[in-house]
Design a protein around this nucleic acid. Structure first.
Lengths: 185, 185
DNA sequence: TCCTTGATGCAACGATCGGTGCGTTAGCCT
DNA sequence: AGGCTAACGCACCGATCGTTGCATCAAGGA
């Protein structure tokens, strides 16, 4: 779930700084469109850290990208309670669509999917699934009818991520809200 | 009568053989799960071709993967005419879902998305869009009502590719047919 | 058939990547 | 405050990548 800083062996100041610097360097290099030369020495140089450190802590580029994706795509977002399922979903898909408009986010997601394989890909959407499940569960606790989480993910996250990754038409908030209409028909 | 296909390049026997061997080697290496060590020398060795040839003809791994994706995902598939829009779509999504079950296809798609960027990603789905547009157009020529191509792509290709790429639950034909139901509601 | 020319093979090179052993630094604990 | 120990920096190494110049081969045309 969230980053619990008590689990790591040594959550001290320096390790955390190095970790943050490396993560930030990965996002910076990806933002610069250098998806080609995204190599560990380049990341280390950008982070002001010795390459050996990166090799030892993360091992491979795949694991590093996976870690960056997890920490980037696992914000502790609390979806505000609008009182209705439709309102919650519309608010949420707007947030997701806005997030997927950021080219840096797309670059990180593409690189993670291509390098970290299945695990990296699911790490990109795990938190979104959890948020969606929370919204559906909240509606059920209100006593209302709610579709299955799987179906909601198919009809909401499916079009959103498909447009973001595979097409050149980034999702817009207005278009995303129509997806809610198609789901709650 | 046969118009000599004087194309700019040389469609002769050897170039075509080399091209086919390299394309096949890329798919083979990806099928072996070697997405990590997917490098041009490795591809050339697998294809029985000198690395220089690959560097000269394709230039970079991104362009090579893009070319492989284009040639793999652009079969001249003719969707059979079942007489109704629903039948055509159900038949088509079944084909797409079956294709997306192949791990080799998924590996190629992930590698292309991660390496070849936006252009590679759209190359993976361009032909699917064309097929869907053809189905919709056929229904209109029958005089029937058909949804917009964009909407159909969002609600059909979206869930299909989302499941295939981002989740560990590959799409099944039965599930894919339900998508048609959600679209034609 | 021979000639032209584009495509491929070959060998060598510099550059850089990925890894290892060791000394040093800086958190955490008593 | 001082020791303990994980984490980091440094120097060095082998392996491999990406490129270039030149020789060779094969496809297409006169």
């Amino acid at each position: 779930m969230s980053t619990t800083p008590t689990i790591h062996t040594r959550p001290g100041g320096r390790s955390a700084r190095v970790r943050a610097a490396v993560h930030h360097a990965v996002e910076e290099l990806l933002a610069d469109g250098l998806s080609e030369a995204l190599t560990i020495p380049a990341i280390a140089a950008r982070a002001g850290v010795h390459p050996t450190t990166v090799y030892r802590r993360w091992g491979s580029l795949a694991e590093l990208l996976g870690a960056v994706a997890v920490s980037r795509f696992s914000g502790d977002i609390v979806v505000p309670d609008t009182g209705t399922l439709r309102g919650d979903l519309e608010h949420w898909v707007t947030d997701v669509a806005t997030d997927l408009t950021d080219p840096d986010v797309l670059a990180l997601m593409r690189a993670t999917v291509g390098t970290a394989g299945t695990e990296g890909a699911s790490a990109c959407v795990a938190d979104r699934h959890a948020q969606l499940a929370a919204i559906v569960e909240r509606e059920r606790s209100r006593g209302g009818e709610a579709p299955e989480v799987e179906r909601a993910a198919d009809l909401l996250l499916g079009p959103l991520y498909y447009r973001a990754i595979f097409t050149q038409r980034p999702p817009t908030p207005a278009w995303a809200r129509e997806l809610v209409g198609a789901l709650l028909r």
